[in-house]
């Protein structure tokens, strides 16, 4: 087929296919899956506080490589480095996801007009992914930067951050935004690439996960607030 004739015919549309179009789509999906899976693990790890201070201490000790450190507590440097890695993944994801934003007023109005005229659940779900994605531009970096500059985690150290440094406000806003964004996103990426044909089942799983993750997230946040209220400054790190 004559590619040149195609090009001349297409000048007023998007230009000839560039390999970057495919790459951008793949990067968005891969970074999205990475972040979604990380979130699933992250929320479970931090919610181990619901099983007691000792449980959370051991989770942190294990994840920070406690078995390799002389003190047995682990290295906060691990959290620092991992946070930098997550920041890079978030930046990559945001960079390619920006292609989807209705950046022009006309596009935004077209979207709102469509939503008011056409009754379609998945389009509405995408709208909420868009809104939460926008919120995450501002909230996620705050959390990640805190973990890069102050990576100390522990039953008392985290409670101090939540209660005395007022991080609870950030977490209360970040939690629903990131959970809704990530779970709708994981559902979408699966149907997008045809990973499953059972769409209804997947949608149900996404809904259940949203409720479940926000619940354990909120309960553990309350736990940290309760622990923080009992602590007097300066705090001493928890040791079992």
């Amino acid at each position: 087929m004559n590619v040149k004739s195609l090009q001349s015919h297409h000048t007023h549309y998007a230009s000839l296919g560039s390999p970057w179009s495919a790459k951008a789509d793949k990067v968005q999906s891969i970074t999205g899956i990475l972040l979604g899976c990380f979130l699933l693990a992250h929320l479970h790890f931090e919610s181990s506080i619901l099983l007691g201070k000792k449980a959370f201490y051991h989770v942190v000790q294990f994840l920070e490589g406690g078995m390799f450190s002389s003190t047995g507590h682990g290295f906060p440097m691990v959290t620092k480095l991992f946070s930098i890695f997550i920041l890079i993944v978030v930046m990559l994801h945001a960079l390619v996801a920006l292609r989807r934003f209705p950046a022009q007023l006309g596009q935004w109005r077209a979207l709102r007009r469509h939503m008011s005229g056409i009754n379609h659940k998945d389009s509405h779900a995408w709208f909420w992914q868009l809104v939460t994605g926008f919120i995450l531009f501002f909230l996620a970096p705050v959390h990640i930067f805190t973990m890069i500059t102050n990576p100390e985690i522990g039953p008392h150290l985290s409670a101090e951050r939540v209660y005395h440094a007022n991080a609870w406000l950030l977490y209360a806003l970040l939690l629903p935004a990131v959970v809704i964004h990530a779970m709708i996103g994981l559902y979408r990426v699966a149907v997008k690439w045809g990973l499953t044909a059972n769409r209804a089942g997947l949608r149900k799983v996404a809904k259940v996960l949203i409720v479940y993750l926000i619940s354990i997230g909120l309960l553990s946040l309350i736990s940290y607030i309760l622990i923080g209220r009992e602590l007097s400054l300066p705090i001493t790190p928890f040791v079992p």
């Binding site: 549309y13 296919g17 560039s18 179009s21 951008a24 998945d122 389009s123 979408r188």
Partner: peptide
Amino acid sequence: GNQDGVFGCMTL
């Protein structure tokens, strides 16, 4: 293979 085709589809 561009934003007007499969890579522009947002799977709504």
